[in-house]
Write a protein that binds this DNA or RNA. Structure first.
Length: 776
DNA sequence: GAAATTGTGGTTTTT
DNA sequence: CCACAATTTC
């Protein structure tokens, strides 16, 4: 038997040996999807003698593409496979054929910060105050993104929108900005992310010869994560397989989490309608996770109503119980996670195999603090990607303007960075002058040839500064043609004064390191291109598509690190141990989703994605209180949190619950937990007895007033069962951690017994730890 | 024109 | 709370 079919289930084999015609693989999490794709690629090559370069596999992220490539190369020993993302595929196609639709091959790619810059500039030109618009800039971008996904140019957009009289005014303004934005992009010879897809669709749609040529080039198309494709990506997939129909798509409707970004899960669900002859294969055996984990995931996702009923199952062992831990507040939650993971690490689990996941990036803060406190190395898959760092954006802007002389956004970014005496006002006059002349086609060309001295008036100082800048750029315009990308970067840093400017930066070391890293990345890219200029162009264009998952903030040099990551970014990854924090209404599900059924289902899918990343252990955590931002009062205040409704959707027997209080101690209410394990991690000295007795009236820091129902002194430490006034079920409390005192005693007296033992570490048993929680 | 200071507004997820 | 914009001061 061929090695491609080794160790596969019958159903997986069916997918691997699929040759011609459309196929849809519904692949549940951990069902061996990547393996199936890689093996099919390999099988096509070795069994059917398809040339590797005629197979195109499209994934969602660069990282996924790299992994896929690695796997395929390992199997086939061939390196000329085509594996890329939709966006980078489009960049390549547009570079090659873009001239047919008036796109210069040296186009720049604008990310959202570039877009925002551009739109702000446009608004200024239109004499509009960004703050007085009836919508936020982000609304504008999502609006035009929808427009572009529906292939609506500004004119088409407005004619469609105006049918709705209520929205007419709103749409009119959007239209005006959209129109100017498109014109500005064209003048700047730049494309935004949606354009990359849209222009490619237009290319394939309108030019049969190009379509044929590309379809000839790629005989077999595989698309991964198909549930997250948008309309344009579907169209590209269809156009590329128009004749041969060799479209092999893989996805999982339950993992569709990008509908807010115009992903259309229907692309997958309706695949059968589109291609009635399609082979349909469902992979629902999970090879990744324990039964406990799968049970939680499956019970949760079965609460979605708009869903093909489908059961994920596994032949794996039961494994550890899934755990829910409730903490007092986010910092306590982070403390629990940190201590627990240090316990796991001590137990021999590699930090690399552990991830902490959350709904929003800001939740990483508490985790970072605690991890640093305990000196556990972590990798933050960050809010701020490498690409978005200021020094990196600046470098790229310098290079971009040298490549694309029309790239106005880049020019405006660096013309006074570092400060060289060219104020925004000066730049605006200069730009105005450029716009109103017709002799020079590019803004950089205009700057360099300097007739602008006649076109507008600025003071001597500004004029001299502009002159110096032009001189400096002039010296580099030819260098971009001959220097390697990394030498070019060094040259820019030297010539522009950026180096000296950086030295004054408080974050100098980091920024310098980032720039060095940029050079390394430049060196690594596109080894097969020989011309230095082409290489730089390739680098800049592909660099714009790098995702945050590709790079990260490292806390030290070791590679062995715990991962902090958003649930969205975690898709496609797997870890032995996964913590998902913030299981509270308003956090997860996110507050913006609470009133919308469809969005709630997507939040549920997001949890499903998170839970199914885990191989061995899953911990869900939440907080009783959380400091939130109050719109009205402009004050931070501690708000009591309602547990996530998703938790109640998971039957109790599948999720063991425990409480965690601020002193780093878990009250395990389920016997399946090995309490000893946790005590060891805390390095606490066991205590003796407390002075609480049955029927004592007590005050608890969190739960308020209650009566001691029973005292258990069999263990090393007392366990009190307390019926609190406001809580139906009596709660188990360990009095040793100072969160409780007798009603008729003041707190200090109650704490007396604490003198009998000590708590290791710098922790002091004082009131400090409580301050702030109950204010307001 | 740049730096320092005050004010303001905004918090989801990202190719 | 934090980032960035506007305003004031140098």
């Amino acid at each position: 038997m061929l090695k491609e079919l080794d160790n596969l289930s019958e159903i997986q084999k069916m997918a691997v040996i699929h040759k011609d015609g459309p196929a849809m693989i519904i692949a549940g999490p951990g069902s061996g999807k990547t393996r199936v794709i890689a093996n099919r690629v390999s099988y096509l090559i070795s069994k059917h003698k398809i040339f590797p370069e005629r197979i195109l596999a499209v994934t969602f992220t660069n990282k996924a593409a790299d992994e896929m490539r690695e796997r395929c190369v390992a199997l086939t020993n061939k390196s000329d496979l085509n594996i890329s993302t939709f966006h980078s595929l489009c960049v390549s196609l547009l570079r090659q054929y873009g001239s047919r639709i008036n796109i210069d091959p040296y186009f720049s790619i604008y990310d959202d910060s570039d877009q925002t810059r551009l739109v702000k500039r446009i608004l200024k030109d239109m004499n509009k105050d960004p703050k007085k618009l009836p919508f936020k800039i982000s609304t504008f971008f999502s609006e035009i993104s929808v427009a572009k996904n529906n292939k609506l140019a500004p004119a088409e957009y407005i004619s469609r929108e105006q049918k709705d009289p209520d929205g007419a005014l709103f749409s009119q303004i959007i239209y005006e900005i959209y129109d100017s934005y498109e014109k500005a992009l064209r003048i700047a010879n730049s494309l935004d992310f949606d354009d990359l897809l849209l222009k490619t669709v237009l290319l394939l749609e309108n030019f049969e010869d190009i379509r044929n040529e590309i379809e000839e080039r790629y005989q077999y198309l595989l698309v991964d994560e198909f549930q997250d494709t948008n309309k344009l990506q579907l169209e590209i997939s269809k156009k590329l397989t128009e004749k041969n129909k060799n479209l092999f798509v893989v996805g999982d409707p339950d993992q569709s989490i990008y509908s807010w970004r115009n992903a259309e899960p229907r692309n997958l669900l309706d695949f059968e309608k589109l291609f009635p002859e399609a082979s349909i294969i469902k992979l629902d055996q999970n090879y990744r996770s324990t039964k406990s984990i799968i049970a939680v995931a499956d019970k949760l996702i079965s609460n979605n109503t708009e869903r093909f009923k489908r059961e994920l199952w596994t032949g794996n062992k039961d494994g550890n119980d899934a755990v829910l831990v409730t903490a007092r507040n986010p910092s306590s939650e982070a403390e629990f996670v940190t201590r627990e993971l240090s316990y796991l690490i001590n137990k021999g689990i590699s930090p690399e195999e552990i991830a902490v996941m959350y709904r929003v990036n800001s939740q990483s803060r508490n985790m970072e603090d605690k991890l640093e406190e305990l000196q556990i190395p972590y990798r933050l898959i960050g809010a701020l990607g490498f690409r978005e760092r200021r020094e990196i954006k600046d470098m790229l802007a310098y290079i971009s303007i040298l490549i694309n002389h029309n790239d106005e956004v880049s020019l405006s970014r660096i013309i006074n960075t570092p400060r060289r005496g060219i104020s925004d006002a000066t730049y605006l006059s200069f730009r105005q002058a450029f716009m109103s002349q017709s002799q020079y086609e590019s803004i950089l060309g205009y700057l360099l040839s300097r007739p602008w001295k006649e076109d507008f008036k600025v003071n001597k100082r500004a004029e001299a500064a502009l002159d110096r800048f032009a001189e400096m750029i002039k010296g580099m315009v030819h260098k971009v043609k001959v220097l390697s990308t990394e030498s070019l970067i060094s040259e820019i840093i030297e010539a522009s004064g950026y180096g000296t400017y950086l030295e004054a930066d408080p974050d100098y070391d980091n920024r310098l390191r980032n720039i060095e890293e940029l050079k390394v990345k430049a060196r690594e890219i596109s080894l097969d291109i020989t011309d230095p200029f082409d290489k730089t162009v390739e680098f800049v264009q592909k660099f714009a598509l790098i995702t945050k998952v590709d790079d990260s903030v490292e806390t030290d040099q070791e590679s062995d690190k715990v991962t902090l990551i958003t649930l969205h970014q975690a898709k496609g990854l797997e870890y032995s141990v996964v913590f998902i924090i913030g299981f509270e209404q308003g956090m997860l599900p996110h507050i913006r989703s609470l009133d919308d059924h469809k969005e709630m289902e997507e939040e549920r899918r997001l949890c499903y994605v998170g839970i199914t990343r885990a191989k061995e252990r899953i911990y869900l955590t939440n907080c009783l209180n959380r400091v939130t931002w109050n719109n009205q009062g402009k004050n931070m205040f501690s708000q009591s949190q309602v547990p996530s409704q998703f938790l109640s959707e998971i039957p109790k027997e599948f999720l063991k619950t425990a409480d965690y209080d601020d002193f780093g101690k878990i009250n395990y209410t389920e016997k399946n937990f090995n309490k000893e394990d946790y005590v060891k991690t805390e390095k606490r000295i066991n205590i003796k007895h407390s002075n609480f007795y049955v029927s004592d009236v007590v005050i608890h820091k969190i739960f308020g007033r209650g009566i001691v129902v029973s005292v258990d002194r069999n263990n090393d430490e007392d366990e009190l069962l307390i019926k609190f006034d406001d809580i139906d079920e009596p709660k188990l409390i360990l009095p040793a951690f100072g969160s409780i005192h007798k009603e008729n005693q003041n707190e200090e007296d109650s704490f007396d017994y604490l003198k009998d033992f000590e708590i290791s570490g710098e922790d002091s048993v004082g009131d400090d730890d409580f301050s702030g929680y109950f204010e307001d």
